[in-house]
Design a protein around this nucleic acid. Structure first.
Lengths: 285, 285
DNA sequence: ATGCCTTACGTTATACGTAATTATT
DNA sequence: AATAATTACGTATAACGTAAGGCAT
């Protein structure tokens, strides 16, 4: 049988033109290359080289063999890459959501039960999430509704209510409750990576401008030092209240989101403990 | 690096289910297989097996690796096959013709000049011949006309005249010359593998029946012992006359064929001596 | 008890290197 | 003289086998 280490030498010869140069590049002796080329020829049982007394080159057969050899090595490379990628996927749980709040506790919960696995979370739009679920890129996802398919399991895992957060001296700070349209025209500070909420605000308040802050520290600092309005939610307040702001509930239907945890049935058994933990959390009030 | 002999053992294990069985089938010891599987895993740097104390099986990674391994071996097999096929083509001259006569001397002529090469001749229809010339399946071909293309060389190499060969007591035996239609309705003995002539006779003499003889000896014997008419040609007569038959020339245009030797320009230099020999033969009267 | 996998250790095959030879530029 | 390929021979790596141990059915 021809071995790959031999074909590797053949490729080096094809690349460098002489056995000497190829041997040097591979840190081998010239005689080694000579022998290997002879052995490959023996195995093919056809001549692959044109030999003069101190010159050797590929003939037509040899060139063809080199082409195929490249293909074989490409396949080998593919194989290792794909198997490694598959292994990575096997030991990574990826959870997607269209809003940030449902993901806050996810890494901790999964890591508790499966310490050997990597937990990865992503905020994406709904279209991407549904596709990713189907293609197995995401094992779990939070969606705004039940996914009605026999292949999936889906249950309400969390509810979030959005609030305006005004400085005490803001014109609307004394209201009991408001609709989006009531604040349309005011400019707001907004965190980046809040997924769906970003789109919703822009849609509901087309006259407002939203000042996006990528850095969390910068956002917090601006809240303290300016009177610019921003948003908050019951879930945000639970974790860390916002100083010097008055929260006013938003009455629009869309300001209340229910997050449905959704996953393929095949994961029910494997990840049962973590799923139970999410259910038990009962952030569903 | 992973070597093919290792992947071969992996395939055997995938096929036979246990290392012991695989080792037996490959005439190796079980420990050898154990070591190889460990080495493959080392090289992949991911786990490929599910190990219990006295049981080993492929996990998902392993199954994927086996799939890719099959592909690699398919490619290896392809490579050897294709290179060998290419080599065979390289050392075989294949000459095609739409009639048998031009091929009679071809093997001798080419073998004289290129004793290391195999000469193969084929009788095919014109469509197949033109395609085969283009695709390089045939290096040379005899065609009924010049091939007008800058990539090819073409010259008239031979001329053949077809004759009726009647028994002396046949109704038409005393004619000086005839057209096909004059003999339409009589039944003829015919050799198989005469290419174009077969089609021509059937077209020109639709009322006749043709009794095909595959065996040359049978044909000759039937000619001697029956008075059934057959065909001959000037080229046939040159080689071996037919006893007890009277040859009568056929006047239809198609009964005279000029055979044009045709080949790609790239062969002009390589095969010059043989080509010159064919030209010199001057069977063009 | 038998079958299967693994580890440890000794043996053998073979891939590699060194040195010498021949030929070409 | 320098460069290249090949041949011959010695060396070292590593692939293999044998023997022994542990676990499961």
């Amino acid at each position: 049988m021809i071995e790959l280490y031999e074909l590797e030498q053949l490729l080096a010869f094809a690349q460098y033109g002489t056995l000497s140069k190829a041997a040097e590049e591979m840190n081998l002796s010239q005689p080694s290359l000579t022998r290997t080329m002879q052995h490959i020829e023996d195995e093919f049982r056809v001549s692959l080289f044109l030999r003069s007394k101190n010159r050797i080159e590929l003939n037509e057969n040899g060139k063809l063999a080199v082409d195929y050899t490249k293909k074989v090595f490409d396949d080998m490379k593919d194989m290792v890459e794909q198997v490694r990628a598959h292994d990575r996927r096997r030991r990574t749980i990826t959870v997607a959501s269209y809003a940030p709040a449902p993901l806050w506790d996810i890494p901790r919960i999964f890591s508790d039960y499966y310490p050997e696995m990597t937990v990865s979370t992503e905020i994406k739009n709904l279209e991407q999430i549904r596709l990713g679920l189907k293609e197995g890129i995401y094992q779990f996802a939070f969606l705004p509704e039940m996914l009605d398919s026999p292949d999936y399991i889906s249950f309400p895992a969390m509810k979030e209510h959005l609030y305006f957060a005004f400085a005490p001296d803001h014109a609307l700070a004394q209201e009991k409750e408001l609709y989006f349209k009531d604040a349309d025209g005011f400019n707001f500070l907004l965190r980046s990576d809040i997924g769906f909420w970003d789109l919703l605000c822009r849609k509901k308040m087309p006259a407002s401008r939203f000042l996006i802050q990528t850095e969390d520290i910068v956002f917090t600092e601006l809240i303290k030092s300016t009177s610019l309005p921003c948003f908050t939610s019951d879930l945000v307040t639970e974790r860390a209240g916002i100083d010097n702001r008055i929260s006013i509930p938003i009455l629009d239907d869309e300001a209340t989101q229910t997050y449905y945890l959704t996953y393929k049935k095949e994961y029910q058994k494997i990840f049962l403990p973590a799923i139970e933990q999410i259910k038990k959390a009962e952030i569903m009030k």
